[in-house]
């Protein structure tokens, strides 16, 4: 893997079934809305030696009409685990709740999708990184955000390991001042939510 500029990474990995699942679904998503992949799958994309059952994605908040168009295309191949009723699915997202989408008749793996409603979520779009694979591009949140979110917000053993993988792998490319900045933003957001 190598950086092709500040916000683009070229990845020549042999894609696994999870990567293909993600790339297929993202092709639909990006026709209708902006998105950013966050959390565990980002570490997996860059080689972390573990599996996952879900891929976390923020999408831009949409009107009901445009969400219905997106969902019509999604349901040709996938189903929502939470409901079959598009109005109900939309209302979950509007209420800030996540929905899970998997290939029809399956539950795993699935996408955990949320509207980007909070400041932290909205900011993840600003400095996103494009990863170019042999089968298409994926948009992920910045490496610095990944590290800060995993180390200072989620903090489980698995999350700390994910952060370590990214830190070790991209040691020379990580801006630690930005990590510090995001840490403060995250901790302030947590204090507000208490």
């Amino acid at each position: 893997m190598k950086f092709l500029g500040k916000n683009t990474i070229k990845l020549d990995k042999e894609l696994n079934e999870l990567d293909k699942f993600v790339l297929d679904f993202i092709k639909i998503l990006k026709k209708h809305t902006d998105y950013v992949i966050i959390s565990g799958y980002v570490s997996l994309l860059f080689g972390r030696a573990r599996g996952t059952e879900d891929i976390d994605v923020f999408i831009e908040e949409a009107t009901k009409e445009s969400f219905i168009k997106l969902y019509q295309e999604i349901e040709e191949k996938y189903w929502c685990l939470n409901s079959d009723e598009v109005n109900e699915i939309y209302s979950y997202l509007k209420d800030g709740l996540p929905i899970r989408v998997a290939i029809k008749d399956q539950a795993i793996p699935n996408f955990e999708i949320k509207f980007a409603k909070t400041l932290l979520a909205k900011e993840a779009f600003k400095d996103s990184v494009i990863v170019k694979t042999t089968l298409g591009e994926l948009k992920i949140s910045s490496l610095e955000r990944q590290i800060a979110f995993k180390k200072y917000y989620l903090k489980s053993d698995k999350d700390l390991e994910d952060a370590k993988h990214i830190e070790k792998l991209f040691k020379e490319n990580i801006n630690y001042n930005k990590v510090k900045e995001y840490r403060i933003t995250i901790e302030n957001a947590k204090t507000k939510n208490r």
């Binding site: 997996l44 030696a49 599996g51």
Partner: peptide, 10 residues
């Protein structure tokens, strides 16, 4: 490395 990861994830 991806060949090894692919075995695990697939």
């Amino acid at each position: 490395w991806s060949r090894q990861q692919k075995l695990l994830i697939d």
